[in-house]
Computed example of a mutant assay.
Amino acid sequence: MDRHGGSRPLLVFMRDRLLNILCFIMLIGLCCCLYMLENVRYPGLIETATMLYFVLLAVVVYAAWLSIDYMRQRYYFKQVNEALERSDELGAATIIQSLATEEQKLVTRLIREQHRAYLNELNKYRRQQEMHNHFVMQWVHHMKTPVSVVDLLIQEARRQPPAGEEGWLELIGSIQEETERQTRALEIMLHTARLDKFELDLHIRRTALHELIRSSVNAHKRLCIRYSIFPKIEGEAWVETDDKWMMFVMNQLISNAIKYSKQKPGVKTLLFRLYAADGNGSGIRLQVIDSGIGIAPHDLPRIFEPFFTGENGRATGESTGMGLYLAKQVCSRLGIGIGAESELGAGTTFTLTFQTRGIHVLDE
């Protein structure tokens, strides 16, 4: 036997049939005992040479059967040994091709199915790792921009200090805006890391959705004022959800609304509309309607894909392509439906649907 557990095919074959051979020997012995009893009872009924001939014939037939069975299965054992010797390779299980019995076919089928499931799981984790590495590199690149801007603002202020209180306030506001960008980027990175262990960071309770929206809007109040965006909440609703994860989703939607509305001149609105999803009030629907630049029709189906930035993201240079993807993932885990409609140049509407038993999706 080698270090991988393999051994010679003949030894494996014979060892696997020890019980069968033992039963054959016991059967021959029983026949001989019956012969001797009958010979005692009826002397001369059966000659000893006839009995020896019977025993010899039985042994020859049985040995011939074992030989044929071994010849039929020896290639299977050789391929199993070869697969064991190459067990460090992922494709070692595919070596086994010579299948003689139904049992071998079933076992080999099971091994291949397990091998396929293992490869699928391995590919999934590889994809997750590739996505994580890509996101980290993109996130680091994204973080360099606000850091560089803050550094330039400080250098400019040292070279030529702002004149008067208004100049200083403008400088402080610019630095604060860049630090807020860093904070949002750090929040995305933190929630990305927590998403893999979502069930360990979950606390479901009855939440006033309108109050949660108001808190998220207040966190973005300075930017809304700076870019003339006026939020408005219509309606009230209470839902069973995790307020921390829901706050993350709202922050992503509001950040996107501000990001793609600030480029438009004049006064913009950001409307949050709460209403019953159907007539009997068994569900709640939230619409987040902005007055931004909208999304191109060919980009709309892909906005929830990871790392997809679209025309708007490439134009502004501020998008990582992960915000809406993470929002979609969180909503899926909370049992919340999310969709989007948009008209290029007129604005975008995100719709969140809270079902009464939506959180039970976690049990699937």
Rank of each mutant, 00 (worst) to 15 (best):
C31Y: 09
S148M: 12
M247T: 13
G294Q: 02
Y53R: 15
F77G: 00
L202V: 00
V330E: 05
I95K: 09
E236K: 09
M71Y: 11
A340H: 03
R357M: 11
T50Y: 13
P306E: 05
G345T: 02
L253Q: 01
A315H: 09
E199C: 07
N120A: 12
L11D: 13
T108Y: 04
N280A: 13
Q182W: 01
E165F: 11
E236S: 10
K328W: 00
R285G: 05
F272W: 08
L286A: 09
R74D: 04
G345L: 05
K221D: 10
G337A: 08
S332I: 08
E177G: 12
R41M: 13
A237P: 05
C31I: 14
W168V: 11
D290P: 00
L153N: 10
E166Y: 08
I95D: 05
T269M: 07
G167L: 10
R127C: 09
E236T: 08
M131P: 02
V239F: 07
R357N: 11
L119K: 12
T320W: 02
G358E: 04
G279W: 11
I28P: 01
W238S: 15
F24W: 03
T145E: 06
H210Q: 15
E166T: 14
L34P: 08
I95E: 04
E305F: 10
V60L: 15
V149Y: 06
P161W: 04
Q129R: 14
V150I: 15
L186S: 13
L362N: 10
R214F: 07
E177Y: 09
L110W: 14
M137L: 12
A49Y: 07
L209R: 01
G266I: 01
C31P: 02
E121R: 13
S228P: 03
S342D: 04
H203W: 06
Y70C: 03
L253S: 09
V288Q: 05
S255T: 10
V150M: 14
Y275F: 11
A276L: 01
M71D: 07
F230G: 02
V217A: 03
Y227H: 11
M137N: 15
I295M: 06
L119S: 01
S174T: 10
R205D: 08
T101G: 03
T351N: 04
I154G: 05
C31T: 11
H298Y: 11
L171P: 03
V55A: 11
G279Y: 07
E103L: 07
V107Y: 05
D290C: 00
T269P: 04
P231Y: 03
M51H: 07
Y62F: 14
E85R: 12
A219D: 11
T48P: 06
S291L: 02
L195A: 12
R226I: 11
D299I: 07
A92L: 01
W245I: 08
A117Y: 08
E38F: 14
H134L: 15
L90F: 03
M137A: 13
V149T: 14
T241G: 06
P231R: 03
F354I: 07
I95P: 00
L22H: 01
A157H: 02
G6T: 04
P43Q: 09
A63S: 12
A277E: 12
W139M: 09
G281V: 09
Y53K: 15
I46R: 11
L10E: 10
S261F: 01
C31G: 13
A296P: 00
K197L: 14
C33Q: 13
L11M: 11
S261A: 04
Q287L: 12
L195K: 06
Y75T: 12
L362K: 13
R3S: 10
G313Y: 06
V249Y: 00
